[in-house]
Computed example of a mutant assay.
Amino acid sequence: MTKVDFYLLTSRQPQASKRFTCKLIEKVYRLGHQVYIQVEDQAQAQEMDDLLWTFRQGSFVPHALVNSEEATGTPVLIGYDGEPGGKLELLINLGAEVPAFFSRFQRVAEVIGPDETHRHAGRQRYRYYRDHGCSLETHELNF
């Protein structure tokens, strides 16, 4: 059974959701886990790629876009247009919809921003996961 964690962020600071996501990715990577980050499109994939290089001075999170030459053996992958290959443990979903392949992951993280559009979409995804028998946990963070 897939465990899904919802991270409800309250900060309205610009880029707060993206900074939190980068810190979460860094923490999971340092714990030795394989991560797939699901984004909406190429532009968001490139933005996440750039942020993981620059979000914090001295941070190093080896990552690559799924279809790039660097993807093989990289512990953190970013993609948007299909199911990733390989053995990955954590899915961080930054997309608006639940990926059809979510159940192949042990864990899923949903990062929900403070605005009502994100909250509404997050509630829909919560119901979807609940209806599919997932173990759900919610974390409210002042981030």
Rank of each mutant, 00 (worst) to 15 (best):
T2H: 01
K3E: 08
K3A: 07
V4A: 12
D5I: 02
F6A: 05
F6I: 02
Y7Q: 01
Y7K: 05
L9K: 02
L9D: 00
S11Q: 09
R12T: 15
Q13I: 05
Q15R: 14
A16G: 13
S17G: 14
F20G: 01
F20R: 00
C22G: 11
K23G: 09
K23R: 15
K23H: 14
I25N: 02
I25Y: 02
E26S: 06
K27D: 03
V28P: 00
V28E: 09
V28D: 06
R30I: 03
R30W: 07
R30A: 05
L31M: 15
H33N: 13
Q34L: 07
V35Q: 06
Y36Q: 09
V39M: 00
E40T: 10
A43M: 05
Q44R: 13
A45Y: 07
E47R: 10
D49N: 04
D49R: 03
D50P: 00
L51D: 09
L51C: 09
L52M: 11
L52Y: 02
W53P: 03
R56Q: 15
Q57S: 09
Q57W: 04
Q57V: 12
S59C: 09
F60M: 11
V61L: 03
V61Q: 07
P62R: 03
A64K: 01
V66P: 01
S68L: 01
S68G: 03
S68R: 02
E69M: 06
E70N: 10
E70G: 04
A71S: 15
G73N: 05
T74C: 14
V76G: 07
I78P: 08
I78S: 09
G79L: 11
G79S: 11
G79I: 10
Y80S: 02
G82W: 07
E83V: 02
E83C: 04
P84A: 01
G85V: 00
G85Y: 02
G85K: 02
K87T: 12
L88D: 03
E89K: 14
E89S: 14
L91N: 01
I92N: 07
L94D: 05
L94W: 03
L94Q: 05
A96H: 10
E97N: 14
E97I: 08
E97P: 04
E97H: 11
P99V: 01
A100V: 11
A100S: 14
A100M: 05
F102S: 12
S103T: 08
R104T: 05
F105H: 11
Q106C: 07
Q106N: 14
Q106F: 12
R107N: 13
R107T: 11
V111T: 03
V111M: 02
I112N: 12
I112D: 10
G113F: 13
P114W: 04
P114D: 03
P114N: 07
D115W: 05
D115L: 08
D115N: 14
D115E: 15
E116K: 14
T117H: 09
H118F: 13
H118V: 06
R119W: 08
G122D: 10
R123G: 09
R125N: 14
R125I: 08
R127Q: 13
Y128A: 15
Y129S: 04
Y129G: 07
R130F: 06
R130A: 13
D131S: 11
D131Y: 06
G133H: 08
C134P: 07
S135M: 08
S135L: 12
L136E: 02
L136S: 04
L136V: 01
E137S: 07
T138R: 03
E140S: 11
E140Q: 13
L141H: 06
N142S: 11
